[in-house]
Design a protein around this nucleic acid. Sequence first.
RNA 1: GCCCGAGUGGCGGAAUUGGUAGACGCGUCGGACUUAAAAUCCGAUUGGUAUCUAAAUACCAGUGCCGGUUCGAGUCCGGCCUCGGGUACCA
Length: 895
Amino acid sequence: MPPSTEGGAYCFLHRSIRREATNYNKILINNLMSSYNPDKIESKWQQYWQSNKTFKTPESHDKPKYYVLDMFPYPSGSGLHVGHPEGYTATDILARYKRMNGFNVLHPIGWDAFGLPAEQYAVKTGTHPRDTTEKNINRFREQLQSLGFSYDWDREVNTTDPDYYKWTQWIFLKLYEKGLAYEDDVPVNWCPELGTVLANEEVIDGKSEVGGYPVIKKPMRQWVLKITEYADRLLEGLDELDWPQSTKEMQRNWIGKSIGAEIDFAVAAANASEHIKVFTTRPDTIFGATYMVLAPEHDLVNRITSDDQREAVEEYKQQAAQKSDLERTELSKEKTGVFTGAYAVNPASGEKIPVWVADYVLATYGTGAIMAVPGQDERDWEFAEKFDLPIIRTVEPPEDFVGKAYTGEGKAINSDFLNGLGVDEAKTEIIAWLEEHGAGKKAVNYKLRDWLFSRQRYWGEPFPIIHVDGEPKPLDEEHLPVTLPEVEDFEPTEDGDPPLARAEKWVKTTDPETGKPAVRETNTMPQWAGSCWYYLRYCSPDFEGGPVDFDEEKYWMPVDMYVGGAEHSVLHLLYARFWHKVLYDCGVVSTKEPFQRLVHQGMILGEMEFTGYKKDGEWISADLAEGVSGTERIKLQDERVEKKGDHFVVAGTDCMVDAKAHKMSKSRGNVVNPDDIVEQYGADSMRLYEMFMGPLEQVKPWSTKDVDGVFRFLNRVWRLMIDEDTGELNDTVIETDPSGEQLKVLHECIQKVTGDVDDLSFNTAISAMMIFINEAYKWDNHPKSVLQSFMKLLSPFAPHIAEELWQKLGNEESIAYADWPELNEEYLVSDTQMYPIQVNGKVRGEIYVPRDKAKDKEYVLAEAKSVENVAKYLDKGKLVKEIFVPERIVNLVVQ
RNA sequence: GCCCGAGUGGCGGAAUUGGUAGACGCGUCGGACUUAAAAUCCGAUUGGUAUCUAAAUACCAGUGCCGGUUCGAGUCCGGCCUCGGGUACCA
């Protein structure tokens, strides 16, 4: 994935309890030798898993499969931050859980390793991006392994590996073959000061993110992928996916399908052969079209502008061209435009209407021209009002309607043969009429643009394209991969050509087919390319006959669970779906959609911060401080703040403070480094805490002191079983038949954990395990069978401690493939049933009834009424109704 | 502006179909153990009122705000407010 916010080094002052303890006397140290020691057991089991290849993906297809995937990371220089392990822990729990439930699990990881930071570092230091990338990957791998994730490391993929990008290039050739890749002159973000092209994300307010230099649009020859051809299929495919509604909605909006009509308006000027084609979703309002607008970039502008208006139009075009996209929208409150001097004929009414140029019409959407219907369009109304153009309502607004343009439902008026029809009927009617008169037809439009697929960068996949006689020509498959050439300098050339142009020997080549001189394509692919299909490579990472072995794809795909950040809701997920559908059409894959279920983990924010404001040395309220000059922001410790009403105030005052958890960022200095947490508490605590914080998909503030809670829990688990003096099992851990109570507690835990893991409610699953341990501490014996079952429940969450204790309980095999405990509902039933007794909906008492009477309405009601505190209410009034919900509640209604 | 999501103790959160609001954890307070500290263990912890004190019990209010449906609403319906995310002249 493209780099997101990166973490920096952050040093924790909070020191480990275990570490501190080492300064104390010998006895203590001896004890510590047998106390819970994550350092020791975690490295032991990580080595065990690795040397035994415990998590090697099964080769056979004999069991049901489960493919659980993380969005692979961009290996940045700052290493993992605490956001990464959140999703990774969730998927790891699922992977381990499914293995124990008899699934063949594919749980891989890899590196989205092309990208800008390594290249920028190369520009600055001359270090080859390959070296930077390799170093970063090694760091990431180590960090991931230190968290005990059960990835199959034999299936690791790396987008920068020529053996991988060979197939990225191969897929590009398929796109080219199918006519889905073409060259076009496209305006790009060109920064003259930096002498480079910038990605949209690198341009902020029309200036370069780095240096703040102006950025202009400059047309350049670019590769473009025809994703628009798949717009409909990308839209329809969404329906069957188990994805967050909001993400599907965002993709739908992005594709932006709208159904309407294309209508031709004849130009009523001297040279009357011209037509203006418009797209509209409201053809029913055509009788209200009182003028037309062309985008400033529209081809027809020059041809139809009258001589006396030419100067004004030219000037307007100039102005519009200089505006950045942002300026255009920023100034949107005030509409601008110029009359062309030309008129067109409304094909429905036969009226002559003026044609204007205005930048509120976008050249890139629809036909770049509109029929303006101020009566039913707010923008048109605004424009018409400003330039005093006629307004005709063609839909009758409701009587109580107050406002300008009316865009709602209603009967057609002022519309000749459409009068009286509703909006939908009128649309159908007018489209038929237009088609009949050759003036228009039904049409569909999309917001989705074709995908600009080339970058003027070094660190990306080279295109498998040469140019012969100025024409692009694809290379044959046998010439793949086209590997990146070595260059001295990673910056663009002085002419603005991409860095690859510096590799002259590489660029100048010959056409292998004809022997003619040829030049190689010097653009590279964008970072999205590698991430568009990596999930397929995992199915058969060493396959040499194509991007993926069809049989493996057929078994493993689609991805059953895909977890990653919501920031990839549109682009990555849409591009990957697009490629997947193309590969489906090529017969490379058997599935129409790659990711069946998708979940976004919520962002982890920094620790809660309190900020107070002072002016002239006095506290002032935060809500008053904004915009007041000379205020001073002061970060406050927790104890200097107290809650008053709905908000927090500086202790002892009425001055409000800002209480907020902020996004982690280097500049704010609130980045938490997972390494520090692992060092202090161990990987199991880290995993457990990240899952215990709250629901996976929710945004949550980090709180290091809360890690103590899960760390204590693991200590309690350890001590329940292990005698700290001997390091052996406690005397209470014995081979014996569990009591009914013990079975009840265990099976309640089994039920809760199993259900919660299925629902991804990891936080409540952990809470259920805590309850189990709290209960188990009350027992004077601990049957091994019960503890074994509990260790299985714990193992997906805290695998190291689970393996260690599993072994201490006498098991020789890893717990990773132990059978998940089976729920026996019989054990859940207690001897008595408790009923809360309400009077008029308020709880006034509770009763316990024997199990065999639990559903006996007469009995329960009689018992209920005999409760002293209930009876006193019954005495006061008349019992009018009795509500009895079996095994739930009793409510007595008294008047 | 539009589209999504969320508002529950001092804090993170729980309550999966309308059925005892605050599980579990953090923090805080009190106690036990200890020469002492740490660790550990036990108890209390939404606010208020009443019963002489304590224990205990009872009652009232309480899930962003206002209203509704229901025997019963954190949960359902209508109208707002606040925060977060996305998107923005898309005809």
